[in-house]
Design a protein around this nucleic acid. Structure first.
Length: 431
RNA sequence: GGAGAAGUACCCAAGAGGUCGAAGGGGACGGUUUGCUAAACCGUUAGUGGGGGUAACUCCAGCGAGGGUUCAAAUCCCUCCUUCUCCGCCA
């Protein structure tokens, strides 16, 4: 959510900056209503002050044995008027909030304007492996090696679900350990959060109401539902909601492993078969709460970390700076780490590192007290996947495949592979 | 799932319709005393959100959350949330 005071003072500037992400808005009507609301509020608060003053007289008069019926009658009228105005003010405030919530974050000045087509490649690491008729794609590879069992996954849960098994499961878990190890070395605190979250978490994270239909909802008796988290970011954004942190506590550096659950409704395109898009995948998420002046450096750190993880695996990848229109609504700036998928001959996102500035902090009321001034300010929040496995595994099996169909396990995963350094195809009927 | 109890400021805790934005402790901070420490004594300590004002300042809201009753609610009523205790269930 944007700062309403800032909009009041700089409506033109805000509108221009939002236009860079393709969001057209005119604040004239909104500001007019805002002024009306505040005027009414002022008037009503004076009425309340008056009521408080007069009401305090009643016990005094009573004590002297006076008659208060004239006072109560008059105050009843005043009170009724106050109540009516309160309802009106609340309605106006709600409309205002609804309007504000629908406004995306102001994109950072240092990213390109426009949509996807303006994304800029910041750096490239490794050689994009050219297509070769003898090479297999990841779906063939994970099936021929028995790493993934799609058929039985679908039997249990429907399409878009799979089972990691044998060396595949070990590799998956080794990857997660590799990520976790890196974050622990960097002093990040590890969190294992609940996977079922309250509705309000989705709101603060900025996913709701827009993406309500994209999560698995759990309905109880009430109107509001709980949901299974689509990313640990949703949990991590909320842990300090409605809190005032001490300045010394910042930056708070967290990471969490959770499976991520997404409905991904609609049919997949043919080239998104296999693990590129599923209803459940594993991810380690990095998250930071910082002081405003530290968020740029924190952003650079998260990008560096995500890139380094892919590099450590020896996988070809690149880093892209997203144009304003391609960043998700709550974010000021996003860099994607994209990994080369030889069979598709494209780079696919494995990590998305974003800074929300104070946008999420305003929604969730996440603040800190500045030691020097004693004043309360909004934190900045940043998040980045570090990493999602569902696209790393395809990249590993494709980029590390040998002519005989075996897959060489990246060196860096050895500590967790229980001696498996090559994953070989299994014979027919060995299911 | 059933039955009870409780949620007040940094912590403990009083409060039961009218100077209650809230007694009293503790803690923290400042001071007096002191060779040092301790003790004693004195003082300060509601943060927050939101209006108005250039400002000093001022007003409104706020006692788990949301509604209601009333001229007036921490106090009465309703709904919800959380915690604790007991019973049941426990692949």
């Amino acid at each position: 959510m944007l700062d309403i005071a800032y909009i009041r003072n700089n409506p033109q500037e805000v509108a221009e900056k939002l236009a860079r992400r393709g969001f057209e808005i005119d604040f004239a009507e909104f500001l007019e209503a805002d002024a009306r609301r505040r005027a009414l509020m002022h008037e009503n608060e004076e009425s309340k002050a008056e009521r408080n003053r007069q009401s305090a007289q009643i016990p005094v008069i009573k004590k002297e044995g006076g008659d208060v019926s004239a006072w109560t009658a008059r105050l009843r009228e005043l009170s009724d008027r106050i109540k009516e105005n309160d309802i009106l003010i609340n309605t106006m405030a709600e409309e205002q909030l609804e309007f504000l919530r629908a406004i995306p974050n102001i994109p950072s000045d240092d990213i390109p304007a426009g949509g996807k087509e303006n994304n800029e490649v910041v750096s490239v690491w490794g050689e994009p492996i050219p297509v070769d008729a003898s090479m297999k794609n990841h779906v063939e590879l994970v099936e021929s090696t028995g790493m993934i069992d799609y058929e039985r996954g679908a039997k249990l849960s429907g399409s878009g679900f799979w089972i990691y098994r044998g060396a595949g499961a070990v590799l998956e878990w080794a990857l997660l350990n590799y990520f976790i190890n890196d974050h622990l070395n960097d002093g990040y605190e590890m969190l294992l959060t609940p996977h079922i979250l309250n509705y309000s978490c989705g709101y603060v994270g900025g996913q709701f109401p827009k993406f309500e239909e994209d999560v698995f909802q759990i309905r109880g008796g009430g109107d509001e539902f709980q949901f299974i988290l689509p990313t640990a970011e949703t949990a991590l954004t909320n842990i300090h909601a409605d809190e005032i942190l001490a300045e010394e506590e910042l930056p708070k550096k967290y990471f969490a492993y959770t499976p991520c659950y997404r409905r991904e409704a609609g049919s997949y395109r043919a080239n998104e078969r296999g693990m590129i898009r599923g209803h459940q995948f594993n991810k380690v998420e990095m998250f930071q709460y910082t002081r405003p002046e530290d968020s740029e450096e924190a952003f650079a750190e998260l990008v560096r970390k995500a890139g380094r993880l892919v590099e450590g695996l020896g996988l070809a990848h690149r880093i892209s700076m997203l144009a304003a229109g391609d960043c998700s609504a709550g974010m000021r700036k996003t860099f994607d780490i994209e990994i080369w998928i030889p069979s598709m001959q494209i780079y696919k996102e494995v990590s998305s590192v974003s800074t929300a500035g104070d946008y999420q902090a305003r929604r969730g009321s996440i603040r800190f007290r500045r030691a020097e001034t004693g004043k309360v300010e909004f934190c900045h929040t940043l998040n980045g996947s570090g990493l999602a496995t569902s696209r790393v595994i395809p990249a590993i099996v494709e980029q590390c495949q040998q002519p005989d169909g075996s897959i060489i396990v990246p060196e860096v995963l050895k500590p967790w592979m229980h001696g498996i350094d090559v994953i070989r195809p299994i014979g027919e009927g060995h299911a």
